[in-house]
Design a binder for these strands. Structure first.
Lengths: 150, 150
DNA sequence: TAAAGTTGACATTTATAAATATCAATTTTT
DNA sequence: AAAAATTGATATTTATAAATGTCAACTTTA
């Protein structure tokens, strides 16, 4: 009678997702426009949200409403993630990538023609998946600096 | 007739600094309470601001007003700075330091008893001095990750 | 000894981000 | 064919962060 739902399976259309999160459809689109979330879109262009998407969105909400970090603040924090180091692209790709210089927006909102990321799907990328909040970035920086000194 | 002013010489009392920055005295105290700035205080407890302080405050203002990053957002960004790696404290000090876990506030607002920082003045520390805005942190992360892969 | 500074608490103003609503013209789904 | 989705633009509401003001009791400066 019950079916097991894959965390990442895109199943909820926007109206349903909005209701589950208790926010408006418009807000969901707004977060997307700001680059905070990447919902699944079939060829049809209709959005579908997974359980994992809902969790991520709730996390963003909490950061905005409880933690009082503005959307532009969140974007700046996400722009700090060193994607080149995480996906380990080539040195050339890294040096030519917009993400290296960008201070305002997360890497997955940038154009990436002609490099490692061209063939990758940002929604499924570790960078997007593993950095939905600030704690994860701090942990990452800690590991990085400990590795360095060890 | 003119005298050369040391960038870091604490000379302007709070009212003068406020007027120069075109903000209220109250706001200056607020930024301080939030941990964004550390003004000089003589034994008397009266604040004095240097030219460098004024620049730093103007930078904070721009981040809040132009860049639309909230104060709590700025604090979170500053909390990402890996001070242990910058001042190169001992491994023991690092592991016991609050700054390692802290996600909300910059290291210089934390208690640091019984470690390397006990004897240091935060206002003169590289961590405080070199990270007054987000760009500097991004640059730091870039260097760190490039070093790692090289 | 005024004038200016201090802390702390409380209150108010103002500016604006976040969220919502609506309309229009079009496309997709069921 | 109706219901629900799309983009894009425009407008409005609402919630609250940022900034300011004020009062009180006290200290420091010039």
């Amino acid at each position: 009678m019950y079916r097991i739902i894959n965390e990442n399976e895109p199943i909820y259309p926007i109206r349903v997702a909005a209701k589950m999160l208790n926010i408006s459809v418009h807000t969901l689109r707004m977060y997307e426009k700001e680059g905070l979330i990447i919902p699944f879109k079939k060829e049809s262009k209709h959005r579908l949200y997974s359980e994992a998407d809902l969790k991520r969105i709730q996390c963003i909400r909490d950061t905005i409403n409880q933690d009082k970090v503005s959307i532009d603040g969140i974007k700046r924090i996400l722009a700090l993630v060193p994607c080149w180091s995480i996906i380990k692209c080539s040195e050339d790709d890294m040096k030519n990538c917009l993400a290296l210089k960008e201070n305002l927006k997360p890497c997955w909102t940038l154009k990436h023609n002609n490099n490692t990321c061209t063939n990758r799907n940002c929604k499924e990328c570790e960078v997007y998946m593993n950095f939905s909040n600030c704690h994860q970035l701090k942990d990452f920086i800690v590991k990085l600096t400990i590795k360095e000194t060890a």
